[in-house]
């Protein structure tokens, strides 16, 4: 396990390095508080740190305070080392965010025992983080397809709308529906139906770009968010997605989707997400009516249509 030793005294630093190496640690050294901070806030930071209290630049408690202010980072178990032994110093060190406190020069066996305690606490912390992440995943993902669930994909769509208005960018929504899904379920059973949904999910995920989102919107409906995709590329990208699903052959079943698409740019600021989804749904309905396994792009939103109409009127005189 990696451990940081920060001490401005070279003798103490080398002594500690050797003791810890002998105990099996991978030791990283820092000569002062600033260097310690760089290491602790950098990539692959050690999870254990021994900080001298008094160092030039930033002292040990100062390093603790700064590290603890980065709450999003993995927890680092910090032990302060000092020749100070007064109770008020101990309290100040712990208040600054240190986990433990040792008086220098410290006994090797005591140091190792305390670091083992630190490792135990870090393992517990890791388990808690893993459990939290699993709960977060379960709360935001569909268990069958492992795609974003309805709540999460709608939240991403709202975020994308805000970003579009803020950055004057654009994106597209693709509402997809598995063709003849009820018939597949009735004829082949729900297990096959589930396999079809998983296969469609896999194809949709595999045909979008990093940064795009794919979610399960309802039973056999999927919502795809294509970032930075405007009207000029929506048809091409929507067709690629549709064709990727149509190429699937699962147990001699031909699988396909119909899709209704709508693009969103800053002109859609007066629209809400529900209205945009309603437009995509209407386009999907048309795709179904026109024979399925096809993509239909919704008409531009009314204001844009009005502007385009006014523009063509002025050109035509």
């Amino acid at each position: 396990m990696k451990i940081l030793v920060a001490d401005d005294d070279v003798v103490s630093r080398r002594l500690m390095e050797r003791l810890l190496q002998r105990a099996g640690y991978d030791v990283i050294l820092a000569e002062d508080g600033r260097e310690a901070l760089e290491i602790m806030l950098g990539n692959n930071a050690p999870r254990l740190a021994l900080l001298d209290w008094m160092m030039p630049g930033v002292d040990g408690p100062g390093v603790c305070l700064e590290v603890r202010s980065h709450r999003e980072r993995p927890y680092i178990y910090i032990t302060l080392l000092s020749s100070k032994g007064a109770k008020e110093d101990l309290v100040a060190g712990l208040e600054a965010g240190a986990d433990d406190y040792l008086t220098k020069p410290c006994d090797a066996e005591e140091l190792k025992a305390r670091l083992r305690t630190g490792e135990r606490i870090l393992r517990l912390e890791d388990k808690l983080v893993d459990a939290r992440e699993e709960m977060r995943f379960r709360a935001t993902h569909d268990p069958l397809t492992l795609l974003w669930n309805r709540g999460a994909i709608l939240a991403h769509a709202k975020d994308e709308m805000c970003r579009t208005l803020r950055e004057r960018s654009q994106f597209s929504l693709l509402l997809c529906d598995a063709d003849h899904f009820k018939r597949i379920n009735d004829l082949h059973g729900h297990l096959v139906g589930d396999a079809v949904l998983q296969e469609i999910a896999s194809k949709l995920s595999g045909s979008v770009r990093p940064g795009d989102f794919v979610g399960r919107y309802g039973g056999e409906e999927f919502l795809v968010i294509l970032k930075d995709c405007g009207p000029e590329s929506l048809l091409r990208r929507g067709e690629q997605i549709r064709q990727s699903v149509a190429s699937v052959n699962l147990e001699d079943l031909s699988i396909s989707i119909s899709a209704g698409a709508v693009y969103v740019d800053e002109d859609a600021r007066e629209e809400n997400l529900e209205a945009l989804l309603s437009q995509a749904d209407a386009a999907l309905y048309r795709a179904k009516l026109e024979g399925r396994n096809r993509l239909v792009i919704a008409e531009p939103h009314p204001r844009k249509t009005r502007e385009m109409s006014e523009a063509s009127d002025s050109i035509l005189g």
């Binding site: 005294d9 103490s12 002594l15």
Partner: peptide, 15 residues
């Protein structure tokens, strides 16, 4: 204070 403290640390380590 700072310089003496650093030297004190080394001397402590060296008993």
């Amino acid at each position: 204070e700072q310089a003496s403290h650093a030297l004190k640390g080394a001397l402590s380590s060296l008993s």
